[in-house]
Design a protein around this nucleic acid. Sequence first.
DNA 1: TTAGGGTTAG
Length: 493
Amino acid sequence: MRLLTHNMLSSNIKGVANDFRLRIDIEKVVEKQIEWKALIDASRSMGYTKLPDEADPSMLDSDDFLQKFHHALLELHLEEGALVCPETGRKFPVNKRIPNMLLHEDEVPIWLIREVRLVKHRDCRWNFRCSATSFEEKIMLLRIKSGKTNIHLQVSLKLSLFISIAFKSTCRHHSSSETEIESERITKIINDHPFPDHPLHLTLCHQIPPVVLSPTFVENVLGRLFATHSNGLKAFEFFKYSLLHSQFCPSSDAFEKTLHILTRMCYFDKAWELMEEIRRSHLSLLTLKSMSIMLSRIARFQSYEDTLEAFERMEKKIFAGKKFGTDEFNILLRAFCTQRQMKEARSVFNQLHSQFSPNAKTMNILLLGFKESGDVTAVELFYHEMVRRGFKPNNVTYNIRIDAYCKKGCFGDGLRLFEEMKQINCSPTLETITTLIHGAGVARNTTKAKELFNEICMRNLLPDIGAYNALMSSLIRSRDMKSAASFIIASIR
DNA sequence: TTAGGGTTAG
């Protein structure tokens, strides 16, 4: 199975539009019995204005990639918040924007260019509208792959612009699941509530019967509150309400979301209060992840000393006196590293390494921190220190160093480390090769990028979305549109 | 927020 994302497609089309002015081969379209007029008419009816009136010979080109692109008949239906392909019945959920789509074998791939919005008409119907500004960007290409027939090159299929959408006036914007509808309703109530002028829990008591308070529902509401940047104190109130009234044990996800919401808005007192409460009532929810959320935010918004104090407070008070070891030490270091506070990370390491025996992961966390700060010299210096201290570099160590070079445009150095890796029997991973493909792109070396992509399969690894995106972006960066187009065709076969 | 890679959009 091959995977392809909307992003890959859209970046490719953007490149096509820029470089080729999206030469639409009218003659070929007619020759292949594709209903060009239908496409134009449908586009006009959608309000597109910059449409060519007639075939412009200068737009013709012998390149056949459009022929390969323009495959399908599209008449999608919008039902209950989902796009439905009439041929296969497969549904694609629709939110404010159609999410990135993955293309699977035997499923309907949807290629979208730029942003697509659902627009509500005055008569309560829904329709699609592209937000892009030029015709090139407004065309959306869709392809239906029938289970039995390979239609890649069978361009005699009817082409019509898919935008003729059937709709239901009753359709909902989001998923049809009852939990989602209910959580959306409760989120709105919470967001509109005048808390803290009036108590929120009374409203929640009125609006949410305890039986509705499933872990999924609670996570759903908190997720929405998180996404809408709602008042953190309201989210906290809601979570406390769920702790009191739900017949289920709260999920770690709900707890972590609440912690995220509170710390993001710097409500650290409330966050500690929440941790204390969970320590008393649901100790098992206190995990390294929740500790990491808290420490990262404190490192970001408070002082170095505050962060160290918080770490101590975690050990002595929150985590029930558990003796902290390497894992917890790594979390502390990572908190500084992710905030790019490498002086602080270094200082903590020097200060505490004798107390918490560091491991290879510890060293890689620091190495990564130096890399993210964009300091290749610091990466190499720390790498040598790591070796001097007796740590054996592993795949991750090499991947970080290779990425540091590639991001700086030193592709040759990246390749050198790649060779070194192989020589010492440290097997390159999918991440190693993806990094190098990206590095080849930065160095505008598409030949090497393609070679590296092929090496993935030669090493019995399976390319994933990251690897595809890396090659696609490398090709686009070098304006190698032909390779980009054939890469797409090859990917979906 | 996960010791490592890619993309976009908000």
